[in-house]
Simulated scan of single mutants.
Amino acid sequence: MTKAYVFPGQGAQFVGMGKDLYEQSALAKELFEQANDILGFRITDLMFEGTDEDLRQTKVTQPAIFLHSVILAKTLGESFQPNMTAGHSLGEFSALVTAGALSFEDGLKLVAQRAMAMQKACELEPSTMAAIVGLDDKTVEDACTAIDAVVVPANYNCPGQLVISGSFEGIDKACEKLTELGAKRALKLSVGGAFHSPLMEPARAELAAAIENTQINAPICPVYQNVSAQPFTAPTLIKKNLIDQLTAPVKWTQTVQNMLKDGAAHFTEIGPGKVLTGLIKKIDRATACENISSFQG
């Protein structure tokens, strides 16, 4: 059976995440303590005992989700045998580490640098995102193109659910236009900025050098990357896609469809929450899915 492992992105965090791993697995405890040393602060204290506000800090959110996903995968041992992997936005780094393309240490360092670079880009130009529900992709794409302000499709989450990203002006105009066109919902999201849009260019430029200088190996299985929704194993292409990811849309619907076309028979979401499990079911109702979000013993 062709097994696909997928990893969640930002927004899946919750207070207490990873605490059971830390307390019940010696390997997990060792990796969490290594992460505290790498980051220079005790992220475990914020993950296990912090507040929602603590976890919403960009420098905490992205590393926390990455750590929960990657360490959980590592505790699965021999039961973790993926034939293909993918991750949603930030989750792509989790997928690359668990597929052996990136070391745990390098993956965490890149995620921390990515978080800070994105935070800086958000502060340069305040911006936001909105979820558009109930319209086909082309209608949303055409409406964004026609608006005289920065607004672009950012996350193709599932059919009928597309997140747009841009300036406050662009998002306001797009939400108004798309509501007129029949969107069931045009909901502004509580996010720090316009992720996966041209407004992330400063972050892309800053992270590019760090990614170029990081050792990336051929993964043990194909990793389907957000930028094109295609499978990759060549380190040079994996690097390029990681760099481009910050300003390009997350093609999650297309990724899942391509994994299914290439033989995926069972999807397992590893990490906090079960957002991706829900999206995969909306992309193909017949697909077998499960989520693992806690220590399996």
Rank of each mutant, 00 (worst) to 15 (best):
N157F: 09
A154M: 12
L135F: 03
K138A: 14
T128S: 12
G107W: 11
L108C: 09
A112D: 11
C144A: 05
A154I: 10
N155M: 11
G134F: 06
C144W: 00
P126E: 15
P159F: 13
R114Q: 09
E125A: 13
A131F: 02
Q113M: 11
A131Y: 02
D136G: 09
E125T: 14
G134A: 06
R114N: 09
L124Y: 08
I132K: 00
F104T: 10
P126M: 10
A130F: 03
G134D: 03
G134V: 04
A115P: 01
V111G: 05
D148Y: 02
A130Q: 01
A130G: 04
T145C: 00
E125W: 03
R114I: 05
V150A: 09
L102R: 10
P153L: 12
S127C: 01
D137Y: 14
D106N: 15
G134M: 07
V140Y: 11
K109N: 09
E141Y: 11
D137C: 05
D142Q: 15
Q119N: 11
P126W: 06
D136V: 08
L110N: 11
A131G: 00
V140L: 10
T128C: 10
C144P: 09
A143Y: 08
C122A: 15
E141N: 12
E105Q: 14
V133I: 15
V150M: 12
Q161C: 09
A154P: 00
A115C: 05
C144G: 05
S103N: 08
A121Y: 08
V152Y: 08
M129P: 04
E123T: 07
L108Q: 07
L135I: 02
A143G: 04
Q161I: 10
N157M: 09
P126S: 14
E123L: 12
Q119H: 15
A130P: 03
E141H: 09
V151M: 03
V151P: 02
A112H: 14
E123Y: 04
Q161E: 15
N157C: 11
L108F: 07
V133G: 00
Y156R: 13
T128Q: 07
C158A: 15
V152G: 12
S127V: 04
A121G: 08
P159T: 14
I132T: 07
T128A: 06
E125C: 13
V111N: 04
M118F: 03
A121N: 05
R114D: 09
P153D: 12
M129L: 01
P126I: 06
V111P: 05
D106P: 04
M129Q: 00
D148H: 07
F104D: 09
A131I: 00
M118D: 02
D142C: 04
L108I: 06
F104I: 07
A130H: 03
M129D: 01
Q113N: 12
M116C: 05
A146F: 00
